Amino acid sequence: GTVKVQGITIKVPNPDKAYKIAKKLAKKYNLTVTRKGNTIKVE
């Protein structure tokens, strides 16, 4: 899958794990995490 952070896309082998990490970071930096299948977008 991929993770998008402010325009940066990161390929990740485990979208579930990445999503959990993204959620933690999002809370810390007051961002929104959206997930569509293997693509995770943080904005």
Rank of each mutant, 00 (worst) to 15 (best):
residue 12 V to H: 05
residue 13 P to W: 14
residue 42 V to D: 00
residue 27 K to C: 13
residue 2 T to D: 05
residue 26 A to D: 00
residue 15 P to Y: 09
residue 43 E to T: 13
residue 10 I to A: 02
residue 13 P to A: 12
residue 10 I to P: 01
residue 32 T to G: 02
residue 11 K to D: 07
residue 37 G to L: 01
residue 20 K to S: 10
residue 35 R to C: 14
residue 4 K to F: 14
residue 40 I to F: 09
residue 4 K to Q: 12
residue 24 K to M: 12
residue 4 K to P: 07
residue 31 L to P: 01
residue 34 T to G: 03
residue 11 K to F: 15
residue 42 V to F: 11
residue 42 V to W: 02
residue 36 K to R: 12
residue 30 N to S: 07
residue 2 T to N: 05
residue 39 T to L: 10
residue 31 L to N: 03
residue 28 K to C: 15
residue 37 G to F: 04
residue 36 K to E: 14
residue 33 V to Y: 00
residue 31 L to Y: 05
residue 39 T to D: 10
residue 20 K to D: 11
residue 43 E to H: 12
residue 17 K to L: 14
residue 39 T to V: 14
residue 25 L to C: 14
residue 2 T to A: 03
residue 11 K to H: 13
residue 38 N to Y: 02
residue 25 L to E: 00
residue 6 Q to N: 14
residue 13 P to D: 13
residue 28 K to H: 09
residue 34 T to I: 09
residue 8 I to K: 04
residue 9 T to Y: 10
residue 38 N to F: 04
residue 31 L to S: 02
residue 24 K to R: 12
residue 16 D to S: 08
residue 39 T to G: 03
residue 3 V to E: 05
residue 34 T to M: 07
residue 17 K to N: 08
residue 14 N to Y: 10
residue 3 V to F: 08
residue 19 Y to C: 11
residue 22 A to S: 03
residue 15 P to G: 09
residue 1 G to P: 06
residue 38 N to A: 05
residue 10 I to K: 02
residue 40 I to V: 05
residue 4 K to V: 14
residue 40 I to N: 06
residue 43 E to L: 09
residue 28 K to W: 15
residue 24 K to F: 14
residue 5 V to L: 12
residue 5 V to C: 15
residue 2 T to F: 13
residue 20 K to C: 14
residue 17 K to G: 04
residue 16 D to Y: 10
residue 43 E to K: 08
residue 31 L to A: 06
residue 2 T to H: 10
residue 4 K to W: 14
residue 37 G to N: 05
residue 36 K to H: 12
residue 14 N to H: 11
residue 40 I to S: 05
residue 15 P to L: 15
residue 20 K to R: 08
residue 24 K to W: 14
residue 21 I to K: 02
residue 22 A to I: 15
residue 37 G to I: 02
residue 24 K to D: 08
residue 12 V to E: 01
residue 34 T to Q: 03
residue 6 Q to K: 13
residue 33 V to T: 02
residue 7 G to W: 12
residue 30 N to G: 13
residue 41 K to N: 12
residue 7 G to I: 13
residue 15 P to R: 08
residue 33 V to D: 00
residue 25 L to S: 00
residue 12 V to K: 01
residue 11 K to P: 09
residue 9 T to W: 11
residue 25 L to D: 00
residue 25 L to M: 04
residue 34 T to L: 04
residue 12 V to P: 03
residue 1 G to H: 06
residue 23 K to V: 13
residue 6 Q to Y: 15
residue 22 A to C: 14
residue 7 G to V: 10
residue 12 V to T: 04
residue 43 E to I: 12
residue 34 T to R: 06
residue 2 T to I: 13
residue 1 G to K: 04
residue 22 A to D: 00
residue 18 A to N: 00
residue 6 Q to P: 07
residue 33 V to P: 00
residue 1 G to E: 07
residue 37 G to R: 03
residue 29 Y to V: 06
residue 38 N to V: 05
residue 31 L to D: 01
residue 6 Q to A: 14
residue 38 N to H: 05
residue 27 K to Y: 12
residue 14 N to I: 06
residue 33 V to W: 01
residue 43 E to S: 11
residue 20 K to N: 11
residue 39 T to R: 05
residue 42 V to I: 14
residue 43 E to Q: 12
residue 25 L to N: 00
residue 4 K to G: 04
residue 29 Y to W: 09
residue 18 A to L: 12
residue 6 Q to G: 15
residue 16 D to F: 08
residue 10 I to C: 14
residue 2 T to Q: 10
residue 38 N to R: 03
residue 39 T to C: 15
residue 5 V to S: 03
residue 1 G to M: 12
residue 19 Y to H: 04
residue 23 K to E: 07
residue 9 T to G: 03
residue 7 G to Q: 07
residue 33 V to L: 04
residue 20 K to M: 11
residue 42 V to C: 10
residue 4 K to Y: 14
